[in-house]
Nucleic acid binder design. Structure first.
Length: 276
DNA sequence: GCGGAATGTAGAT
DNA sequence: TCTACCTTCCGCT
């Protein structure tokens, strides 16, 4: 269950395992069979990620556009690949490695222009900042132009992929906590300094996320160990302040973490630490 | 075995 | 604002 860091990591992992090699492509589940037949045996020439969208390039044959959605998973393994279960939408196999895709929202063969159209409708991605061919578009200024004019809550804006690409429910909750911002504050009521700090933090947190393949947001001085409290394990595998910690005591102030539903997603925040 | 929930999005109303 | 879609996993019977 992925936010942007997962997708960028998957792009790297695909390149490392399949890049520059001919790949056997199949769709055991069947829904991608026609395209898989077109790609079977082609060389994987590139992998790209923008927000939560993953693109696997097969030279002139086009790109496989993957979006995992809420349930999708990509799993890697070493050959021989096991007999494919009938939930596997896409299987890639090359010498030594295989990858299985299950449950994606999107798995489609698209052209270069179609790929560009996806980029065009996505906002800046904190993981595409800085120089380099894959980095264009990582511009917090573009996001600020939208946010600073919007009456929509900052919680909703951070989840809007047209405003900023790659942030999901965990990074949203955690970055707002780390900057003491109430999730219901309208975007236009953020200060420039607050937004600059939030953007810079997302860049740093999400890069860490790619490196460790999980979301950790708790500063070293706030870990239970550092604060002399019993260690704990969050069930999503990372160490966080508020995500899915409803009714537990805030690590910093002891206030009960609050939860509410906003645009059909669960929101978590600390009413003690986060201010309007 | 069943029901619910889960790091998401598009499309209908 | 709602519903549909895709899969896995966990807790409850």
């Amino acid at each position: 269950m992925p936010e942007g860091h997962t997708i960028h990591r998957l792009a790297e992992d695909h390149l490392a395992r399949f890049g520059g090699r001919p790949v056997r492509v199949s769709s055991p589940q069947g829904k991608f069979s026609d395209s898989a037949a077109l790609l079977d045996g082609e060389v994987l020439t590139g992998a790209d990620a923008h927000g939560k969208h993953l693109f696997l390039g097969f030279g002139g044959a086009g790109w496989v556009h993957v979006h995992l959605g809420l349930f999708g998973k990509l799993g890697f393994g070493t050959t021989p690949a096991p007999p494919p279960a009938d939930t596997v939408r896409l299987r890639l196999v090359t010498e030594g490695h295989y990858a299985d895709l299950r449950g994606p929202t999107t798995c489609a063969l698209i052209t270069g222009p179609e790929k560009q159209a996806v980029h065009d409708r996505l906002g800046p991605d904190p993981l595409r900042t800085g120089p380099g061919p894959l980095r264009a578009g990582g511009d917090g200024e573009r996001a600020w132009a939208r946010i600073s004019r919007s009456r929509t809550t900052i919680a909703a804006l951070l989840m809007d992929q047209k405003v900023i690409a790659g942030v999901g429910n965990v990074y949203r909750a955690e970055v707002l906590f780390r900057h003491g911002i109430d999730p219901y504050r309208p975007g236009k009521e953020l200060t420039r300094a607050e937004w600059d700090a939030v953007w810079a933090d997302l860049v740093a947190l999400m890069r860490e996320g790619v490196r460790h393949n999980r979301i950790d947001t708790v500063r070293p001085e706030h870990t239970p160990e550092a604060m002399g409290r019993p260690p704990r394990v969050d069930d999503h595998g990372g160490e966080v302040y508020v995500y899915r910690r409803a009714r537990m005591a805030c690590l910093l102030c002891g206030t009960e973490i609050a939860t509410a539903s906003l645009a059909a997603r669960n929101l978590f925040w600390c009413p003690g630490c986060q201010r309007r």
